[in-house]
Design a protein around this nucleic acid. Structure first.
Lengths: 87, 87
DNA sequence: TTGTGACTCTTAGTCCGTC
DNA sequence: AGACGGACTAAGAGTCACA
């Protein structure tokens, strides 16, 4: 395990960007997700490796679908080419 | 934490369905993803709570994008309504 | 307002089996 | 082929004080 060293960072950046779009502080957002502030900090910085249920809670806090949360860049131009994981 | 009791089951079913589409056995697929046979069994049955990197490894094993892995049903009919987590 | 190290407790994840 | 259990090690969950 622990190839895929970057997915955590990529997701963290994505979460942070989305949080900022909502105009929430880390603390306010963490609270909304039911997660500790410092834990959220670690996730955004990509140093934590959250589990499915935590990711799901974050998606809920973002009021967003899980599939949308993982649309990092090439959201949906054609069909099958966007974020094939592991950078 | 541990609301969202069903996301694990939903994802597990999705993974199993996709694996079967590929015509792989649980063991062969687990091997392809680089994770343990029994662990994969638990994930498919929804009793395990895999981490981001494991989910990513599975997506890679499915030769599929993470965002696509989480498109459970209403893939993209309208816009914002498909799998808003936590059933 | 956020980053970070350290900490406890739980669980992710592996490996051995049996049914 | 896959469900399920036990035992184990590594790592995540969740929290704190402090910068």
């Amino acid at each position: 395990m622990e190839k895929t060293g970057s997915i955590k960072k990529v997701l963290g950046k994505r979460i942070r960007a989305l949080r900022l779009e909502m105009g929430l502080s880390q603390e306010a957002f963490a609270d909304k997700c039911g997660i500790d502030r410092t834990y959220m900090s670690g996730i955004e910085r990509g140093v934590r490796n959250p589990t499915l249920v935590v990711i799901c809670a974050i998606a809920a806090g973002l009021e967003m679908d899980l599939s949308h949360l993982f649309m990092f860049d090439g959201c949906a131009g054609k069909d099958g080419e966007s974020t094939t994981c592991d950078s």
